[in-house]
Every structure is written in C-alpha cells, then in structure tokens.
Amino acid sequence: MGAILGDDTTRYLFNVTQVRTPLPLTRGQKVDFVPMPDSQAAEIFALQSSTPAAWTSQVVNRGGQFDLGRVIQRTFSTIRDNAAIFFGAAAIMVGIPSTLMGIGQTSFVTGYSPTGLLAMGAGWVFYLVGMFMLQGMVVKAAVNSFNGKATSFGQAFDVGVKMFLPLLGVAIIAALGAGLGYLALIVPGVIISVMWSVASSAVVVEKRGVLESLQRSRDLTRGYRWNVFGLMVIYVILSWIIGAAIGALGLATGGSFLDGSPNLWVNVVSGVLVNILSSVVASAGVAALYYELRTVKEGAGPEALAAVFD
C-alpha cells in the first residue's frame, strides 16, 4: 500500500496493482490518477516532468505505438467500405436539415420571412437529431468494419436510434464543459475537448452511461492527448479544405448571396455538401481514434471490440 497527496491536499491510498507505469513509483514523484470513493486512488500513471497531467505525453503501451497515420488510414478506409451507409445516412440526417436551413436563409435575402424563420428552426432541430443518430450509425458500422464485419443500413440505424439520447447527453455536457473552458482561457477548453473526444464511441461501443462515457474517454486519452490534439488539428484543416474547395466550385458556377442572383441555390447546395462530407469524416475519425486508443492502450483486439455488438 502507498499514499498520494492530491492537489486538494487529500491523502489517497493505493495498491500497487493500480499503478500503470512499468517502473516502481518513487517518493515525491508526480503522478496522475483517478480519485475513487473512500479516498482511494486508481489508474495511476507516473509523470516524468512538471507537465500538467492533462497534457502528459508519457505512454504506457500494451498493444503498440499510437500511430496518427494509421488512424487517418482507418478513417478513410471505413468511409470507402461503408460509403453507401455513411453517405446515405448523412444525406438524410444531415443533408435534408441543412437544405431546410439553407432555404430559410435564402428567404431572408429580400427581407424578413416568417416562413424562412420556420424553415431554419425546423432544419436546426432535425439537424441536431440527425447528427447524433449519424454518430451512432457510423461508429457501429466503422467498428464492425475494423473487425472485418459487414453492417446493414438497418442494423446501423437501429443503433443510431437507441443511442440518440445518451449521445445527446454526452454532447450537451461536453459542449458546456468545453465552452466554459474556452471562455476561461481557451486552453482549458481545448484540453476538455481532447479529453472527452471519444466519449461518444464509448457510449455506442461499450454501452456506458453519459458520465461513465466521459470518464472512460478521459482514461483512454490519458497519455495520448498530444496525439489526439494533433489529429483534431488535421481534421479541422481537412474540413477547411473541403469547405474551401466546394465553396470555390460554387463561386466558379456563379453562386452568390447578392439580391436576385439566379444562382443563389448554388450556395445552398454547396453548404449541404460541406455539411455531409464533414459530418461523415468527423464521425468516422472519432471511431477510428477510439479503436486506436483501445488497441494501443489496452491491447484490445478485434474479438474484444467486436464482442460489444454480439
């Protein structure tokens, strides 16, 4: 048995079986850990420097090294293998609501429009519902794809419906936490976004509750948060490129928000395409990231990850 003095000055007792670092802990060494009831410490990781725990780059590998390239490759391979499901679902759940919002926006070009306001409101509600259902569908099909299993649209849709409320709950808490963090000094918001980045996958794959999934994401990303942050930057840049490319195509074909433009609908269509592509890439990317983290951190093979759907 040992004891850890927490930042809150509480003494936490621990058993050596909870230490996740290969080398023994030494007196005075800084650690990151999960506080448990009755002042117990679990999931203890040694820190090699004064770097904040949320950003420590130390890795305790069980299944190999974290590979950004592998995550990106898996992202696009599962999009290719499940193109019909992903883009079909995105067209319905993201494309249609985006079109409604676009119609509402165009109606305001010549002045206030109650009908346009109604279309925008309805589109936003349907978009919110559709996005979380799409997340559930993509994670289901992606994890099955990583494990060499096929998924039907109906199977994926069933998961999307069942997981909608937990995914919504995770998104609300994550958005509030990250939002407050960004208002504070930006950096805390980034840390929270990274820390909870795979909570939605934990909901779908492990069927955990909202708070459990957030904690699970915190545990999985610990030691890999710089890697996750780098991946998020790559995906943000990719989204910008997609948006810029489609936007440029719209301008090239005469798209404009000027009053009376005959090509006003070009902007609506281009906006819908950007939303569809971005939502598919983001959802598949989160699934690939979750798979990578479980593989390298826990050594979870295809059988273990596939079992969650059996």
Rank of each mutant, 00 (worst) to 15 (best):
S77D: 13
A142P: 04
L185C: 14
G116K: 10
T17Y: 11
G64N: 13
L183Q: 00
G111K: 05
M232N: 15
V34Q: 13
T26L: 13
A53M: 12
D310T: 10
L289M: 13
V94W: 00
W55Q: 12
D7N: 14
F108C: 08
A307E: 14
A142V: 03
A304K: 13
R20T: 01
T295N: 11
A156E: 01
W55H: 07
V138A: 06
A282T: 09
G136L: 04
V59M: 09
F86E: 01
L183R: 00
R80W: 11
L68K: 01
F153I: 05
Q48P: 03
P52T: 09
G64K: 11
S193H: 00
A84D: 10
S261K: 11
M195D: 06
A284D: 00
L305D: 04
G95I: 04
Y291A: 07
P52L: 12
W240E: 10
L211W: 13
L264G: 11
T295M: 11
V228C: 05
I234P: 02
I4A: 11
G116S: 14
G148K: 04
N267K: 02
R11D: 08
G104E: 02
I191D: 09
V159C: 01
N61E: 12
I85Q: 03
Y112M: 14
I191S: 11
T295V: 10
S270P: 01
T56A: 10
Q58D: 12
A91W: 00
V268A: 05
R20Y: 00
R225I: 07
A252S: 10
K162C: 04
L238K: 04
L305W: 05
L214H: 05
Y235L: 14
A288H: 02
A184T: 14
F309K: 00
A244R: 09
Y182R: 00
L23P: 01
F126T: 10
P188E: 07
F257N: 13
G260I: 11
V272H: 03
A83I: 15
L176W: 09
T56C: 00
N144G: 11
V161Y: 03
V125K: 08
A304Y: 14
L293S: 05
F87K: 02
L176S: 09
S217H: 03
L238T: 15
F108R: 14
L176E: 01
A83W: 15
L277M: 15
G104I: 01
V125F: 14
G189M: 10
L128M: 14
